[in-house]
């Protein structure tokens, strides 16, 4: 009896310890630090209660950043999942119906690989790449617009507060779609082909098959994708920092960047931790909400 207990303990304690030290303890400390005016440069600090949170409520730059995260939260998962589903269904079941049965469009294997490319690149490389693509004179986007005679549409993309946020959103969608295409196609592979064949025999259109058969049967995967994308939308730090650094005039700022700048550029770790704590609850709430909203009965196959 004792031996077994010890045996289990030896396996459980090391990972729990690591988890405690590297995950739970920093979280706990962030809560503690958020109640201080710690500058992050010396061991001295004072407890100031909830002052940091009060300041947060009146901080226009924080709300502005939060608004952008909110927009990302609304748009990024929807756009990425819709595109991902579309591409994945084209790759898996989009092909012309013929004697071979239900299959993907021609060149599906090629597309599958190409869509995954952005996932192979590191975030930093994607950021720098797109920053140059958006460059007003030397960038590829304006270059392409000019090449087809649309000079009027060539903009100073990242220098214009009307566009900078949307430019970042496009990059975020571009870099994420590939992964969800692969995820969804994997899920679609497990849907029995005869379901599609039956639907086709009944004269269902492609849109109907997608909405009535594919989506319900990969719903679990969509749900997971939704939560992942929501977390990416609440973060967004790396790409924003590299491409626009929040500018111009905070028009593409996100909460993560605000936190980072408050801590490392302004030397206000107490206030930065308060932003972090706010973000913690936000992420938690959003994840719980999404799981709740997307809850459905499982379809057994």
């Amino acid at each position: 009896m004792r031996g077994k207990r010890l045996f289990i303990a030896t396996f459980l304690i090391p990972p729990l310890l690591l988890y405690g030290i590297f995950v739970i303890s920093p979280y706990a400390q962030a809560f503690q630090i958020s109640g201080t005016n710690w500058s992050g440069l010396s061991p001295t600090y004072e407890f100031i209660g909830l002052d940091n949170f009060q300041r947060l409520l009146g901080d226009g730059y924080f709300w502005n950043a939060l608004r952008h995260n909110g927009l990302l939260l609304l748009l990024l998962p929807v756009a990425t999942i819709l595109l991902g589903l579309f591409f994945a269904s084209m790759i898996s079941v989009g092909g012309r119906a013929d004697r071979v049965g239900v299959h993907g469009v021609r060149g599906a294997g090629f597309y599958r690989i190409v869509y995954f490319f952005p996932q192979v690149l590191s975030v930093a490389i994607i950021g720098v790449l797109w920053k140059e693509m958006y460059a007003p004179h030397t960038g590829m986007i304006n270059g392409a617009l000019r090449a087809v005679g649309l000079d009027g549409l060539a903009m100073a993309w990242l220098g214009d507060p009307r566009f900078s946020f949307w430019c970042v959103l496009v990059v975020l969608i571009w870099m994420n779609v590939g992964f969800y295409v692969v995820l969804f196609s994997a899920a679609m592979q497990s849907i029995p082909r005869d379901l599609y064949e039956a639907a086709l025999l009944d004269g269902a259109s492609r849109v109907t098959t997608l909405v009535r058969i594919t989506v319900p049967l990969v719903w679990d995967t969509i749900q997971v994708a939704w939560v992942y994308l929501a977390i990416i939308a609440i973060d967004g730090f790396a790409i924003v920092q590299i491409i626009t650094d929040g500018g111009p005039s905070s028009s593409s700022d996100v909460v993560g960047l605000r936190l980072y700048k408050t801590a490392f550029a302004d030397g206000q770790f107490g206030y930065a931790s308060a932003i972090g704590v706010a973000m913690f609850f936000l992420t938690l709430t959003v994840a719980a909400m999404f799981l709740q909203v997307t809850r459905r009965d499982r379809v057994e196959l």
Partner: peptide
């Protein structure tokens, strides 16, 4: 157990402690 481990961790590696 997890809470205990966390407490031990917090004591061991506090970001604000200093010499």
């Amino acid at each position: 157990g997890a809470a205990g481990a966390a407490a031990a961790g917090a004591l061991g590696g506090c970001a604000m402690g200093g010499d």
